[in-house]
Design a protein around this nucleic acid. Structure first.
Length: 298
DNA sequence: ACCGGTCCCTGTTAGC
DNA sequence: TGCTAACAGGGACCGG
């Protein structure tokens, strides 16, 4: 499932392979994949054809490609849990992907294909608006602009413009439990179920540790743990599961081999040997070591 | 304003 | 073998 490292891998691929190219046509095969674009397929097509992709930007799990020449709007993409953006040089070679939802024809004969099996992802053309702090909108963003539908999303843990001390304070002010806070995209963005579990294991903090009870040191450890695991995943090209996620050119990441707790229920904790516990929480599964990550005694 | 619960959606897999 | 149910989960949305 694409979280920050995977989306950043896609962003990097788009920057290298799509920026500078122009849209020649749009084919929407599944209207639900553009459900967030008010105006439908015709309007989406009208706002894309003839426009040039001038950059590839990202904040958390939101990706956008600013459109030239004006650069005050952008193609916004969210990959959801199974979305892929595949660059193809010649779509007539080989068959279309089974879950091809939207195809953008580029002016040099290639395509940018949006493929999404589970359909939580979407594309839209949206206006950009100024960031509240005047800093660049996110990774790869050349301007202090952010897509309107992503303006409520907080900066992510790898963003140089992130105020880490303010985030630590905000985290401890929350009246919830730490894993829920990690997944709250308005507090910090980019963290999903996988990296939340891995980061909490590193920090030796229980997923249901109440946020107000986190010491400053624990809060730092949690943020550092999540940041570190995402950086390592990014270096390895993102996590991949059963080929659902592939990067912009179709190459799978391989960080899944390095996962310590996620999906490892019953396996021995590499730190202490106790069996990793899998529990259900927030309609999601949580994985943690009950010995290394004890709940605080209240 | 903040918080927690629900639902959306589809393909795969486990279990009877 | 064939069916059903569980499962995967980001984020919009809504009620308290």
């Amino acid at each position: 499932m694409p979280e920050l490292p995977e989306v950043e891998t896609v962003r990097d691929g788009l920057e290298r392979h799509v920026v500078g190219r122009r849209v020649a046509g749009v084919e929407v095969r599944r209207p639900a994949s553009i459900r967030r674009h008010l105006g439908g397929a015709a309007d989406l097509t009208g706002r894309l054809v003839g426009r040039e992709f001038t950059a590839a930007a990202r904040r958390g799990k939101f990706l956008w490609l600013p459109l030239g020449p004006d650069g005050d709007d952008a193609l916004l993409a969210h990959l959801g849990m199974s979305g892929q953006l595949l660059v193809r040089a010649d779509p007539s070679e080989g068959g279309d992907h089974r879950h091809l939802r939207v195809r953008l024809f580029l002016d040099d004969g290639g395509t940018l294909d949006f493929v999404d099996q589970r359909t939580f992802g979407h594309l839209a053309v949206v206006d950009l608006e100024p960031t509240v702090d005047g800093r660049p909108g996110g990774a790869g963003s050349p301007a202090a602009l952010v897509p309107s539908p992503a303006a409520h999303i907080a900066r992510d843990l790898l963003d140089p413009a992130l105020d880490r001390d303010a985030l630590t304070r905000a985290l401890r002010r929350k009246r919830t439990v730490v894993k829920r806070a990690l997944l709250d995209q308005t507090l910090m963005s980019g963290v999903g179920n996988i990296y939340a579990d891995e980061g909490l294991w590193r920090a030796q903090v229980h997923p249901e540790h109440p946020t107000p009870d986190l010491s400053v040191e624990q809060a730092h450890r949690v943020l550092d743990g999540v940041t570190a695991v995402m950086r390592e995943a990014l270096r390895q090209g993102g996590t991949s599961f059963d080929a659902l996620y592939v990067n912009v050119n179709g190459a799978s990441g391989y960080f899944d081999r390095s996962l310590v707790v996620y999906g490892q229920g019953g396996r021995a904790c590499p730190r202490c040997g106790a069996p990793v516990v899998r529990s259900t929480f927030m309609n999601r599964s949580s994985h943690f070591c009950p010995v290394c990550q004890p709940l605080p005694s209240s």
